[in-house]
């Protein structure tokens, strides 16, 4: 089975040769190719070389377009801060008030350099990997995009105290998100990975996620040309998983295994893909044997063993730059030994 077939079979629930393996190794490509961070996050060819090096070393079942959310903020005028070994961060938000937001035009996917970088990277990876492996576009969910444009504080304030304005913001963000995501599907992405930080019970209470965010997410996801995987954004999600279940285009849900995957499966029902695994940004702190053990214990769980729609991933944000490669091989090792039982 190649990666394409493996993922397709996981979606359909067909027998597999082994579980699919999706480590989030966007940043890691910079390490593999010793590329400077600035070049990596601005030059699609450099980014593609990184993903291909990741492919050669780890043979993951999915490669990623750039996981660099701050660049989405930059497309709206936010100022960036680059550091040596991580994805860029927002230094200053681009929009300070709702009035400013109302007046501004959405960034143009055909001319904005940051958006062209996302597009071109996905196009080049899809050419380079010649259909051997699936490609995911990693984008912030529309409910998180305003945090990158207004800053976390201001967006929280709008959601909490100015819900009418928040709705208008989301309507406009949705137009941008749908355009960009659909364009990335056209360039070769098979799926979008969408961290939904604002849907987490750690960030917002249930009533707001239900009444304000879900309808807007539904509206955006309903217009996508391809499938999406909703992602926990590195925090808890289980208690709000029911709110996200059944959204259009959502074929999968990535969740912390410590929250209880059997409970998650109960909430999701039998069909959606469940994705879980060790926490990516913590892999640098663990021994490879510990990582293998965590992966094994997830895969060997009785409920997981018979779950045909399960994929082993690294959770949270990108795997950190300094993580030793053997720590990632440890996950593959666990897969090779126990990952193929879903036949």
């Amino acid at each position: 089975m190649n990666s394409f077939e493996r993922i397709e079979s996981t979606i359909k629930g067909d027998p597999l040769d082994r579980r699919a393996f999706i480590p989030i190794l966007s940043l890691y490509g910079a390490r593999m190719t010793s590329c400077s961070i600035k070049k990596f996050y601005s030059d699609p060819e450099a980014y593609t070389a990184g993903q291909m090096a990741v492919y050669d070393e780890f043979k993951p079942d999915m490669l990623f377009g750039p996981f660099a959310f701050a660049l989405i903020g930059a497309a709206f005028g936010s100022e960036l801060k680059f550091s040596e070994f991580e994805a860029p961060n927002i230094k200053r938000p681009g929009v300070l008030s709702f009035a400013q937001w109302e007046k501004m035009a959405l960034p143009d996917i055909d001319t904005n350099p940051y958006l062209l970088y996302f597009r071109e990277s996905i196009r080049l990876i899809s050419i380079a990997c010649e259909g051997k492996v699936q490609i995911a576009a990693c984008l912030p969910a529309p409910i998180d995009i305003p945090a990158l444009v207004f800053g976390m504080d201001r967006w929280l304030e709008l959601v909490l105290f100015e819900s009418e304005q928040a709705e208008l913001v989301l309507d406009k963000v949705n137009r941008f998100f749908v355009q960009l995501a659909n364009c990335l599907f056209d360039e070769g992405a098979m799926v979008t990975f969408l961290p939904c930080g604002y849907a987490s019970p750690a960030i917002l209470p249930r009533n707001l996620v239900e009444s304000l965010l879900r309808p807007k997410l539904r509206q955006a996801l309903g217009q996508l040309k391809g499938p999406s995987i909703l992602h926990h954004a590195g925090t808890i999600m289980l208690d709000h998983l029911d709110i996200l279940t059944g959204l259009p285009s959502a074929i999968g849900y990535a969740l912390l295994h410590t929250e209880g995957l059997s409970k998650a499966r109960q909430i999701l029902g039998p069909d959606p893909i469940l994705l879980s695994g060790p926490h990516g940004p913590s892999l640098d702190q663990l021994e490879s044997s510990q990582i293998e053990q965590i992966s094994r214990s997830i895969l060997e769980d009785r409920d997981r063993e018979k779950d045909r729609h399960f994929i082993l991933v690294t959770l949270g944000a990108d795997v950190l730059y300094h993580t030793p490669p053997e720590n990632l091989h440890a996950m593959r090792k666990a897969l090779a030994d126990v990952g193929w039982n879903a036949s």
């Binding site: 105290f161 750690a202 209470p205 249930r206 707001l208 808890i236």
Partner: peptide, 14 residues
């Protein structure tokens, strides 16, 4: 409780 969100403490702060 796991279900006390940043939003609620932000409201408290305000």
């Amino acid at each position: 409780s796991e279900n006390f969100s940043i939003a609620q403490s932000y409201v408290a702060a305000k």
